[in-house]
Computed example of a mutant assay.
Amino acid sequence: MLTSFSRTTAAALLALLTLAACNTTPQPKFQQELFETGASPYARNFNSSTTDTCEAARRALLSQGYLTTMTRTDTVDGTKNFQPTGDTHIVVEFHVVCTPGEEASDTSIVYVNAVQNGFALKKSDTSASVGLSVLGSLSLPIRSNSDAMVKISSETIPSGKFYDRFFGLVDHYLQTVVRTQPVVSNRIETRLLPMPVEVTTPTPTPVPVPDLLDAIDKAAAAQPASGASVAP
């Protein structure tokens, strides 16, 4: 049988335990990170180059309505807006990084991360008073509503089927995307061309005009005159 003292002590201890449980602060999620060395749920290996894999990732996001930006061949960023209700708004930011694989030159590793940002409509009333001189110090309040979307949350989407479906879509586009083919560097042989032979045409020697006239006169004198008979 418990005495009044023991009952009071037990009640006090129970109250202290309840108070301690209520005052316990939950551990933040970032302190629960394990940083394990095993396979990462945010990464996947592909048998393709980093350029081809990132191009497939870009097409995968575009096919699902994401607005993508690709300023580099190894990085893809995309955003998509959602409107669950009239007073809430959600923006999903998708980040993709492609790095070379560890086994061969034509392999790559894709790291993905998606952040879900939540926005809510915040309504605020602003009031102003107008003094009326006719009525003395009487003032009338004038209210106006000012609505704005305020960011209320931001959290990385946890690993699961969300990323598995994305990786599966990337693999699908890798089968259909035109892969880049490196230019084969063949050995180039060089050789000297033979020197061109200069062809010269002999220039005819001009005959002096007086000599030409003498030759004509001599030929005319050697021929017999017209009507003359030649002795046998």
Rank of each mutant, 00 (worst) to 15 (best):
Leu2Val: 13
Phe5Gln: 14
Phe5Leu: 12
Ser6Gly: 10
Arg7Pro: 02
Thr8Met: 15
Thr9Ala: 15
Thr9Glu: 10
Ala12Phe: 10
Leu16Gln: 10
Leu19Phe: 14
Ala20Arg: 00
Ala21Asp: 06
Cys22Asp: 02
Cys22Met: 08
Pro26Cys: 01
Pro28Ala: 04
Pro28Ser: 04
Phe30Gln: 07
Phe30Cys: 00
Gln31Trp: 06
Thr37His: 04
Pro41Trp: 13
Pro41Asn: 03
Ala43Arg: 12
Arg44Trp: 06
Arg44Val: 02
Arg44Phe: 06
Phe46His: 01
Thr53Pro: 06
Thr53His: 07
Arg59Lys: 14
Arg59Ile: 05
Tyr66Ile: 03
Thr68Gly: 10
Thr68Ile: 12
Thr68Asp: 09
Thr68Val: 15
Thr68Asn: 08
Thr69Phe: 05
Arg72Val: 08
Thr73His: 07
Asp77Arg: 11
Thr79Ala: 13
Phe82Pro: 04
Pro84Met: 14
Gly86Gln: 11
Thr88Ala: 06
Ile90Thr: 14
Val91Pro: 04
Val92Tyr: 09
Glu93Arg: 13
Glu93Gly: 10
Phe94Cys: 03
Phe94Met: 11
His95Asn: 12
His95Arg: 09
His95Lys: 12
Val96Ile: 13
Cys98Leu: 05
Thr99Gly: 00
Pro100Lys: 02
Glu102Asp: 01
Ser105Leu: 09
Ser105Tyr: 02
Thr107Ile: 02
Ser108Gly: 01
Tyr111Glu: 01
Tyr111Trp: 04
Asn113Gln: 05
Ala114Glu: 05
Val115Ile: 07
Gln116Glu: 08
Gly118Asp: 04
Phe119Ala: 01
Asp125Phe: 04
Asp125Ala: 10
Leu132Asp: 12
Leu132Asn: 13
Ser133Val: 14
Ser133Leu: 14
Ser133Phe: 12
Leu135Lys: 11
Leu138Thr: 13
Ser139Thr: 15
Leu140Gln: 10
Ile142Thr: 11
Asn145His: 11
Ser146Gly: 06
Ser146Thr: 15
Met149Asn: 10
Ser154Val: 07
Thr156Pro: 05
Ile157Trp: 00
Ser159Glu: 14
Gly160His: 07
Phe162Val: 07
Tyr163Asp: 02
Asp164Trp: 00
Phe167Arg: 02
Asp171Glu: 09
His172Asp: 09
Tyr173Glu: 03
Val177Leu: 01
Arg179Ile: 01
Arg179Asn: 06
Val183Lys: 02
Val184Lys: 03
Asn186Met: 00
Arg187Gly: 02
Glu189Thr: 03
Arg191Met: 09
Arg191Gln: 11
Leu193Arg: 14
Pro194Ser: 01
Met195Glu: 11
Met195Trp: 04
Glu198Gly: 06
Val199Thr: 09
Thr200Asn: 07
Thr201Ser: 11
Pro204His: 13
Pro204Gln: 11
Pro204Glu: 12
Pro206Tyr: 12
Leu213Met: 09
Ala215Cys: 03
Ala215His: 09
Ile216Val: 14
Ala220Ser: 06
Ala220Pro: 00
Ala221Trp: 12
Ala225Met: 10
Ala228Lys: 12
Pro232Lys: 08
